[in-house]
Amino acid sequence: MTTLTKAPESAAGRETPVRRRRRLDHVPYLLLLPCALVIGVLLLWPLGQVVVMSLYDLDSVRQVRGEREWPWAGLGNYAEILGDPFFRTVLRNTVLFAAANVVLTMILGTLVGLLLNRLGRRMATFVGSCVMLAWATPALTGAIVWKWIFDDTSGLVTWFFNALPDGLSGALFGRANWTGYGWFNDPLLFFAILTLVVVWHSFPFIAVSVLAGLKSVPSELHEAARVDGAGPWRVFWSVTSPLLRPVFGILVVLSTIWDFKVFTQQYALAGGTQDRSTYMLSIYSYATAFSPPPKYGLGSAAAVILTLILLVVTGFYIRALLKQEEL
């Protein structure tokens, strides 16, 4: 009987685990390559174009003439933007508005997330679905609805104040007839309404994200804290909040980015770019680029400055968050 034996592989031809691992090291990069190409085309290329445009003295006249050679401005556009006193006012408005909206959105979203976590499954599903309607509503649609609510003739707010007794309305607000009152004319009142609109549209995402984080917290930790005599407030600050710190960190970064570049709601409520007293960086960049006389180079420089501010703020916050995680 003949027995066939397999010839032993040579050491040089046998694939070791280390060699196999090295051969497969490039596979994740190949899988990520299509996504990286899409991001590069859709995000990085337009951003690069804006940076290039910010370095030239580009306006609509040269675009209409079809001039191929744009006058080089270098950092002149940035110097003009940063030297403009009105830019500092716009930057102050943006920072104060973003800070107020981030705080209010995080507080309201966290409270709603805690509420959803305490409700039963059916009620939590119903309430969560209702809350997510605000998040699902397009920003422009929501802004139009809120503008109607504060309409000076037929809006719900105007109707409510007109329904108050004349004596009470006059004693509290100094006027009895609210028909024709311009709710969007006063800058402080305009920012208050804009804050209401942005927080209403943003808090559902925070609530659902906090709810997802709460579901990952072991219930045994809460039970142990209650056994030790901790109340709900103490349980949240000593047990829940430290465990959800990474979630809160990401949500704060996202909220900061969104609130810094609010555009649609402000443009819709203000009815354009006429009211300069309510300008923020997004509207300022748009108005500089497209309002007569259009200055695309200056508008691009303002957009790049806004992007750099967001990168710096986000970088510092993520660095602080990583340090806390290491500690």
Rank of each mutant, 00 (worst) to 15 (best):
T2Y: 01
A7F: 01
A7S: 13
P8D: 10
A12G: 14
E15C: 05
T16L: 05
V18S: 06
R23D: 13
D25C: 01
P28E: 04
C35Y: 10
L37A: 10
L44K: 03
L44F: 12
W45E: 03
L47G: 05
S54P: 06
L55E: 08
D57A: 10
L58S: 12
R65C: 02
R65T: 05
A79R: 12
L82N: 06
P85L: 08
T89G: 15
L91K: 14
N93G: 10
T94E: 00
L96R: 12
F97G: 03
M106H: 03
I107L: 15
N117P: 01
R122Y: 02
F126S: 06
V127T: 11
A136F: 12
T141E: 02
V145G: 03
W159Q: 09
F160M: 12
L164G: 03
P165K: 00
G180D: 01
G180W: 01
Y181I: 02
P187T: 15
L188Y: 14
H201Y: 03
V217D: 08
P218L: 07
A224L: 04
V227N: 08
D228M: 13
A230L: 07
S238H: 13
F248I: 09
L251K: 05
I257L: 14
D259P: 04
F260L: 14
K261A: 03
Q266T: 05
Q266H: 08
Q266W: 02
R276E: 12
S277Y: 13
S291N: 04
Y296N: 11
S300Y: 09
T307R: 00
I309D: 00
I309S: 09
L310M: 12
L311A: 13
V312Y: 10
G315S: 13
E326T: 15
L327T: 05
L327D: 11
